[in-house]
Simulated assay, not measured.
Amino acid sequence: MVTVGMNYVVLPGKATLFEEKFAAVIGALNAAEGHTASHLWRDTTDENSYLITSEWNDEQAFRDFITSDAFRGVTNWGKEEILAGRPQHKVYKH
């Protein structure tokens, strides 16, 4: 099992939109082969900073998801409309 931490900084005023989009993306995550759970966390000291933790059976399952058309469509939209910069991902192996 691996846990992936995905760090996002959103543009000012876009936090609610980011949270709504994550709620929609959870469906794609739950349908992804090897995905077990995901959670959205908001930084209490920076309202524009988020962390998504996502648990996977293995790292390859996560890599397959982030190269999928479903993930690419969401990230392209987010990059243009919501995000202040490129997301940073970190894989934690158990």
Rank of each mutant, 00 (worst) to 15 (best):
M1W: 05
V2K: 15
V2E: 00
G5S: 02
G5I: 04
N7D: 15
Y8E: 02
Y8M: 05
V9L: 02
V10S: 05
V10G: 07
V10D: 03
V10R: 02
L11P: 05
P12S: 10
P12Y: 04
G13M: 08
A15M: 07
A15K: 12
A15F: 02
T16N: 10
L17H: 06
F18I: 03
F18N: 07
E19H: 02
E20L: 02
E20P: 05
K21H: 10
F22Q: 14
F22M: 09
A23Q: 12
V25Y: 10
I26G: 00
G27V: 01
L29N: 10
L29K: 04
N30F: 01
N30P: 01
N30G: 11
A31F: 04
A31V: 05
A31R: 12
A32C: 00
E33M: 10
G34K: 05
T36S: 02
A37C: 01
A37P: 03
A37E: 06
S38T: 07
H39C: 08
H39P: 02
L40Y: 09
L40S: 06
W41C: 07
R42C: 02
R42M: 00
T44P: 14
T44M: 14
T44W: 12
T44Y: 12
D46H: 11
D46M: 03
E47W: 10
S49C: 13
S49K: 15
Y50G: 01
Y50F: 15
I52K: 07
S54E: 15
S54P: 01
E55Y: 04
E55V: 09
E55P: 02
N57P: 02
N57G: 12
N57W: 00
N57Y: 03
D58A: 12
E59G: 13
E59I: 14
Q60W: 10
A61N: 11
A61G: 06
F62C: 13
F62G: 08
R63Y: 03
R63V: 14
D64Y: 04
D64W: 05
D64L: 07
F65W: 14
F65C: 13
F65D: 06
I66N: 15
D69S: 13
F71R: 13
F71A: 12
R72G: 11
G73T: 01
G73N: 09
G73K: 11
V74S: 06
V74R: 03
N76M: 01
G78T: 00
E80Y: 04
E81W: 01
E81F: 00
E81Y: 06
E81C: 01
E81H: 07
I82M: 06
L83E: 00
A84Y: 12
P87E: 06
P87A: 08
Q88C: 15
Q88H: 14
H89W: 08
H89M: 15
H89Q: 13
H89A: 14
K90G: 04
K90Q: 07
K90M: 10
V91F: 11
V91D: 00
V91A: 11
Y92L: 14
K93M: 13
K93L: 11
K93H: 12
